[in-house]
Computed example of a mutant assay.
Amino acid sequence: MVKPVTSFAPSPPAAPSTSPVASSSSPTKRTFQSTLFNVKFGAQRNRLPPTKTDSSVAKRTRSQSAAQDDDSIQDEKRPKTEATSVSTAPSAAPKYHHRGPFHQVTRPDFCSTYAITDLPDADIYYKPDFIPRRLAEEWRSQLDRLPEWYRPKLKVYGREITQSREIAAYATAPGLHLKYSGHPVELHAPFPPLLNHIASLLSSPDCLGEEVRFNHCMLNRYDDGSIYIGKHADNIENKVIVTVSLGADRSWIMQRKSPRKKAGAASDTEMVKKRWTLAGGSLLVMQGQTQKFYTHEIPKELKVKTPRISITFRQLVYDD
């Protein structure tokens, strides 16, 4: 069981620099068609997010570097407490870790304790008490203030719509790129301090294991139960998908895919559907062949009036 800290506040941003950032300094781009994205999207909202520019992204990167330098100075002055020792643990998302090697969750006591056993051909684990609800709400409130939130513009059946669900996406290193329903994602690097801290907790010997690392993180914000994510399956290139739920409890549905068959041919595959609640502070792991055989979704629940943020860490395999 991970021993939680009482809080983890991201470092304050440094004063913005006025010097331009040369676009020629970015590494060679790699493109990955992520799955996040064969999904059904919610209705368009009237309020649109402010347009982000390349300069705003560059400003955050410089500010974070300055803030982290300041943190290292302050660490020398502050007493060594239990909270400090956890938050300064070796990072589970080191720079340029996008090439792997990537390992799935194999820790025996975790797998035997938290396995979901009634979904055949799926490799799924659910830990309802990864962190206390109080700490989960603190983390949700801190992540809610990140500056990178936006609503992607997507093309659905030839029409451009603005997605109702806000996202914020991060990579461990610059030069990694995603497409979201055919559109480039605003992908920021490196991980913000709080996400890096959570990734390190996941990759500890007391949780998933030190060999389980991540190179990508996607945040989804659900203001209330009217915001949802439709039935979909992620790409098999996601070797491990780990979701931490913060805030409101929401339903989670997994359903076995209907096999493709020729007309008149009988199917001996049993249709399996399971619905349970992802609690605030819980941890969900999907790996192996799960995406090949199952879809997942978070349905509308209009009775839910409070917000939720999901943190989804991924091992995405990139080809050089």
Rank of each mutant, 00 (worst) to 15 (best):
T269D: 00
K29A: 11
K274D: 02
R308D: 14
F32Y: 03
K153Q: 13
Y228I: 09
S181A: 14
R256S: 15
I253D: 02
L194F: 01
K155C: 10
K305I: 15
S181W: 05
R165N: 12
V39N: 11
Q74C: 10
K155F: 09
V240P: 03
V2K: 08
R133N: 10
R47N: 04
K261C: 07
K77D: 02
T51N: 14
D224G: 06
S112W: 08
N215K: 12
I253W: 01
P128W: 09
A43E: 12
L119I: 15
E270S: 11
Q315E: 06
P12A: 09
P192T: 01
L283F: 02
S245L: 03
Y294N: 03
M286K: 08
S87E: 04
P190R: 04
Q255A: 07
G280P: 02
L284T: 08
Y150C: 08
P90Q: 11
H296D: 07
S55R: 12
V21G: 00
F41R: 10
P259C: 07
G209D: 07
C207D: 03
S7Y: 08
A67P: 13
V244T: 06
L146T: 11
A9R: 07
T277C: 05
L119Q: 05
K261M: 07
R260F: 05
P152R: 08
Y126S: 06
P108S: 11
I124W: 00
L195H: 01
T51C: 15
D54A: 14
N220E: 02
H98R: 11
T295G: 04
H103G: 08
I241M: 03
H188W: 12
D69V: 00
A66P: 12
V272S: 00
G175K: 08
W139N: 04
K239W: 02
G225V: 11
T172Y: 01
Q104W: 12
A93K: 05
T106G: 14
A58S: 08
D123R: 08
D206W: 09
K59V: 15
D54W: 14
P49T: 09
Q104Y: 13
R99M: 03
A248I: 08
C111P: 05
Y114K: 13
E301M: 06
L316V: 10
P12Q: 08
D320V: 03
R308T: 14
R275F: 08
K77C: 03
F110Q: 11
R308S: 14
K292I: 15
A189E: 00
F32D: 00
W149M: 02
L316A: 07
I229G: 02
T18S: 00
L176G: 07
S85P: 00
S204T: 00
W149H: 09
H188A: 11
R78E: 06
S181Q: 13
A67G: 14
Y125I: 03
L202P: 01
Y114Q: 10
I161Q: 12
P20R: 13
A43N: 13
D144M: 14
L201K: 10
Y294W: 03
